[in-house]
């Protein structure tokens, strides 16, 4: 790891003044579960590291009548174990509880999860050509790509968006509060937060290099919601595909309305599967309608040379997420 100067601000405002307008020389450190690995790999080589761990206000969780606000520094373990969050937002808490093992969940934070860099092995190998590290081409397109994107049309870099909290948060209509220079505050819907980068001056999200995510707010609307993921290993890894769903009603023979279906690990950003949502919107969720939604979810998929198998996994994951949310029997657990 390249050596660096370490900063430990105590307020968000102080943290922002320590950041720089361009990516590269200064990085924020939260739980470190992603950043330190990137530094050891020489993919991140900051000369300055600004720790967010001395900022007291970033660790609060407030669940109100209309919304819940989670500080960016709240750990994954706290999200997974929080009784109110589990009752209101199982799509989020189930995903948080399935991340890594207890060590990752005790260290990793919400802000770090949403801002984590992608898992492409070419991106993480300092010796491989990679657009995001200033190379001329994306090595994954012709190379080992079994875990990469399957929605690849118009993408020069085929990374798979890694966050499994992003899907539930987008489905639930959450937004992030962001603090920039001169105390500039803005709010971004998480549906618009993610970005498909193609070069070293861009990230997988739309934060500027001198902006800090301070919290995430989820509206409390009584939505039925759930997440489902397909894993190769049950722990210590990211899933192969993951789906979160949210809608009004949709249980006990009631129709589901306002359906949102969001996928991760299938494209450079989380995918809001609109055709799939339309397939079940205003309908009763049954095995048949959930199957139809799964089929619609993969319309337009253009898998790479090694990951055609993910198309089928997405179909099934969408179906199962809808069935879990609707409270239907989990036939696959028999």
């Amino acid at each position: 790891m390249k050596n660096f100067t370490y900063f430990r601000p105590t307020t968000p405002e102080q943290a922002v003044t320590l950041l720089e307008a361009r990516w590269g020389n200064t990085e924020m450190l939260a739980g470190g579960t992603d950043l330190l690995s990137l530094q050891k790999q020489y993919v991140a080589q900051p000369g300055r590291v600004v720790s967010l761990n001395g900022i007291a206000g970033l660790q609060t969780v407030v669940v109100g009548e209309r919304s819940a606000t989670l500080g960016a520094g709240v750990t994954l373990a706290r999200i997974a174990d929080h009784a109110d969050l589990r009752r209101l937002f199982p799509a989020l808490t189930a995903a948080a509880g399935d991340i890594g093992g207890p060590q990752i969940r005790n260290m990793g934070t919400l802000g770090g999860n949403l801002c984590q860099r992608n898992r492409c092995w070419y991106f993480r190998d300092e010796h491989s050509p990679c657009l995001l590290r200033g190379g001329q081409r994306c090595s994954a397109i012709e190379g080992e790509n079994k875990y990469h994107a399957i929605f690849t049309a118009n993408h020069r870099c085929v990374l798979a968006s890694p966050s499994t909290l992003a899907t539930g948060l987008i489905a639930l209509g959450a937004s992030a509060e962001i603090l920039g220079p001169q105390n500039r505050r803005r709010t971004v819907e998480l549906a618009k937060f993610f970005f498909a980068p193609t070069g070293p001056t861009e990230r997988e999200h739309t934060l500027a290099a001198n902006e800090l995510m301070t919290s995430v707010t989820i509206p409390v609307r009584g939505l039925t919601n759930a997440a489902y993921e397909v894993r190769q290993r049950q722990s210590s890894d990211w899933p192969i595909v993951q789906v979160a769903v949210a809608f009004s009603g949709g249980r006990n023979g009631e129709k589901a309305t306002g359906v949102k279906i969001v996928l991760s690990h299938v494209a450079p950003t989380p995918v809001i599967a609109e055709a799939a949502a339309r397939a079940v919107d205003n309908r009763i969720i049954t095995d048949a309608t959930a199957t139809a939604a799964g089929r619609a979810a993969v319309e337009g998929a253009k898998p790479l040379t090694q990951n055609g198998y993910k198309v089928r996994l997405v179909e099934v994951a969408v179906k199962r997420a809808l069935m879990i949310a609707a409270g239907l029997p989990r036939y696959w657990e028999a």
Binding site: Y6, L29, G32, T33, L36, S37, S51, N53, A77, P102, Q103, I104, N106, M107
Partner: peptide
């Protein structure tokens, strides 16, 4: 363990 909770010591800065 850090304050009773398990962490990966390889991924915590000693200074922190």
């Amino acid at each position: 363990m850090l304050d009773g909770k398990v962490v990966y010591a390889c991924t915590v800065l000693a200074i922190e």
